[in-house]
Computed example of a mutant assay.
Amino acid sequence: MANPWAGEVTITVDGIPHVCKLTLGALAELEDTLGEDTLVALVQRFESGAFASRDVMALIVAGLRGGGWTGTRADLLTAEIGDGPVGAAKVAAQLLARAFGGGS
């Protein structure tokens, strides 16, 4: 469903697969939500392992919005994410990697 070469990742929310993608608008929203001044600082936060669950949630929301989802952060607070918190963190990491490094 998702095209990794287009920076897309699939996440399952409440049993329904969704495409996530970090578009420029989604990245701008993410910077604002997480209070980072630069994309480099945001990426470094994840690369260093110094991220919180709210960071993962913000990345997932931004990616879902970039993929065309019209829900809100509040919608995800009670949703079942495929593979749980670890799966969500993996999707967040893949989103960053694909947004800045291609389809790996």
Rank of each mutant, 00 (worst) to 15 (best):
P4E: 03
P4V: 08
W5I: 05
W5L: 11
W5E: 13
A6Y: 12
G7K: 11
G7T: 15
E8Y: 02
V9L: 11
V9Q: 14
T10G: 00
I11V: 13
T12Y: 07
V13Q: 08
V13W: 09
D14M: 07
D14I: 08
D14W: 06
P17F: 15
V19L: 07
V19S: 07
V19Q: 06
C20E: 04
C20N: 02
C20Q: 02
K21D: 00
T23W: 11
L24R: 14
L24N: 11
G25M: 09
A26Y: 01
L27G: 04
L27R: 14
L27V: 13
A28K: 10
L30V: 12
L30Q: 08
E31S: 07
G35Q: 07
T38S: 12
T38D: 04
T38C: 04
L39C: 02
V40K: 09
A41D: 12
A41C: 03
A41N: 11
A41E: 15
L42W: 01
L42T: 06
V43Q: 05
V43C: 03
R45Y: 02
R45P: 02
F46H: 13
E47H: 05
E47W: 01
E47L: 09
A50W: 04
F51T: 01
F51V: 00
A52C: 05
S53W: 15
S53D: 13
R54E: 10
R54P: 04
D55G: 03
M57W: 09
M57G: 09
M57R: 15
M57H: 10
A58G: 02
A58P: 05
A58C: 03
A58T: 04
V61N: 13
V61H: 14
A62C: 09
A62K: 04
G63T: 02
G63M: 05
G63W: 03
L64I: 00
G66P: 00
G68Y: 08
W69P: 14
T70G: 13
T70V: 08
T70R: 14
T70M: 10
G71M: 10
T72Y: 05
T72A: 13
T72W: 07
R73V: 01
R73D: 06
R73M: 04
R73K: 06
R73A: 07
A74Y: 06
A74I: 06
D75N: 11
D75I: 00
L76G: 13
T78C: 00
A79W: 08
E80F: 04
E80S: 15
E80P: 00
E80A: 10
I81M: 08
I81W: 03
I81L: 12
D83K: 12
D83R: 10
P85N: 11
P85D: 14
P85C: 01
V86A: 13
V86Y: 04
G87H: 10
G87A: 11
G87Y: 11
A89Y: 04
A89E: 11
K90N: 14
K90R: 15
A92Q: 07
A93Q: 13
Q94L: 11
Q94Y: 12
L95C: 07
L96E: 02
L96W: 05
L96M: 08
A97S: 14
R98C: 06
R98A: 06
G101M: 12
G101T: 15
G101I: 09
G102M: 01
G102P: 04
G102H: 02
G103W: 07
G103D: 09
